[in-house]
Design a protein around this nucleic acid. Structure first.
Lengths: 204, 204
DNA sequence: ACTGTACGATTATGATCGTAATGCTATAGT
DNA sequence: ACTATAGCATTACGATCATAATCGTACAGT
C-alpha cells in the first residue's frame, strides 16, 4: 500500500548519505544544516527524520560510507608499490586539493570527527582500521608489522598535508607542500629497515 | 576620561584571544558562539564588538596568536635532533591527544581553517611558514632545501596523526598510531639522502 | 475502483546564531 | 567636584539551527 516501490526508501536514504557526504566535506559538519542537506537530495525538511534518527545518526552513516568507498578504491589498486605511487600522485595533486566535496573524507573532516559523539568516532575507527589494513596490504614485503606502521605513516602524512595545502593561500607554498609530501611519503613507504620505536612511551 | 587605565582594553583583547583559542580548539570554530566566547573571558555579548569587527576577525587573530605561540616554543628548543625527539614525544603523547584546549592549533582546527575566509587562511599561511622554517632550523645539516622538505613532512605527519588518534575510540589503535608516528617521524627527520621528487607534477 | 498507508511537504517549535543599538557606570582629565 | 567617555551590560534583531507534529497525495494491494 506504499506510495513508492520497495526500493524507493532505501534509494532515498543512500542518496541522502551520498549528497550529505559531499556537503559535509565542502561546508563542514557543523556548517551544514538539515534543510540544506535534504535540499541537496531534492527533498525538504520533513523527509529527514523518516530516514535518520538525528543529525548525528546521519553523520555516522556518512562517515561509514565515505570510508568504505575510499577503502574500496585502495583495495581496487593493483598490487605493488607502483600503484601506491600512482594513488599518491593523485591524492597529492592540486586537483584533489581544490576538490573539497569529492575528496578524501579524512582530509576534509578529521578534526571535526574527533569532536563528535561516540557513534561517529566509532564509525571512523572502523573505517580507519580498514583503511590502514588496505594500505598495509600494498606495502607488505614480509614484515606485516612494519607494513602496518608504514601504512599508518602514509595515511596520516597525506591527510595532514592535504589539509595544510588547503589552508594555505599562497599557491607556491601550497604546491610545495604537496610536492614535498610526495617525497616524504616515498621515504616512509620505502623505508627498508628501521630501528624500532622506543618502547617506553607511556600508554595511559 | 576613561573608565579604566590605558592597559585595560588591550589586556581584555588579549584575554579574549587566549580564551577563544582554547574554546575553538575544544569545540571547533563553528561550534563556538560569541556568547560563549565572551563568557569565557568573563564578559557578556556587548563587549565583543568593541574589540573585534566580527567573529571572523577574532578567528584570524586567534590563528595568528596560536601559531606564534607554537613557533616560539619550537624556537626555544635547544639546537640538535635530540630536542626534536623530545618535542615529538610530548607532541605524540596520550596527554597531548587528550588535551584539546591546550594542544596544537593545527591538529584541532586545520580542516576548519581551510574552509574559512581569506583573512583567516592568510593568518594560517604566515604561521605555517614560520613553523616550517622553525622546524627546518632544527633539521638543517647543510642542505637547507632538504631540511625544509623534512620539516614539512614532520609537521604534516604529526598533525594528521594527532587528529587520527583523537578521532579513534579504540585505545589500543589510538595509542598505536601515536607510537607508530614517532617511528615514522624519525624516519623522515633522519632520512639521510633521498631521491628528488618527480618534477613533472602539475602545479596549476 | 477503492482504500490504506508510506513518503515526503508544510509548518511550527524553542534555542541559538552573529550582529548591533542602547543603557549604565566608574573613573580620568579637567 | 564635575563631567565626558571608555568599557562593558542589557536587550533585541532577524536568521538559522535541530527537531517534530501535522498534512497531503500518489500508488500498492485488494
Amino acid at each position: 500500500m506504499a506510495r513508492y516501490g520497495p526500493e524507493h526508501k532505501g534509494a532515498t536514504r543512500r542518496r541522502m548519505i551520498e549528497t550529505a557526504g559531499r556537503r559535509f566535506k565542502s561546508d563542514g559538519i557543523d556548517g551544514s544544516g538539515i534543510a540544506t542537506l535534504v535540499a541537496d537530495a531534492g527533498l525538504t525538511n520533513g523527509a529527514f527524520y523518516g530516514h535518520f534518527a538525528s543529525k548525528d545518526d546521519l553523520v555516522a552513516a556518512v562517515v561509514t560510507q565515505q570510508l568504505e568507498d575510499q577503502v574500496a578504491r585502495v583495495d581496487a589498486l593493483p598490487a605493488g608499490l607502483a600503484s601506491v605511487e600512482t594513488f599518491l600522485r593523485e591524492y597529492l595533486s592540486p586537483a584533489h586539493r581544490d576538490d573539497l566535496a569529492g575528496g578524501c573524507p579524512s582530509a576534509a573532516l578529521l578534526d571535526e570527527i574527533g569532536r563528535r559523539d561516540d557513534a561517529t568516532k566509532h564509525a571512523y575507527t572502523d573505517g580507519a582500521r580498514s583503511m590502514i589494513d588496505a594500505i598495509a596490504r600494498h606495502l607488505d614485503d614480509g614484515d606485516a608489522q612494519l607494513a602496518r606502521e608504514r601504512a599508518i605513516g602514509l595515511f596520516t602524512l597525506v591527510v595532514g598535508a592535504l589539509q595544510a595545502a588547503r589552508a594555505i593561500t599562497d599557491a607556491t607554498l601550497s604546491d610545495g607542500i604537496l610536492a614535498a609530501t610526495y617525497t616524504n611519503a616515498m621515504t616512509i613507504a620505502a623505508a627498508s629497515q628501521r630501528s624500532a620505536a622506543p618502547s617506553d612511551q607511556e600508554s595511559r
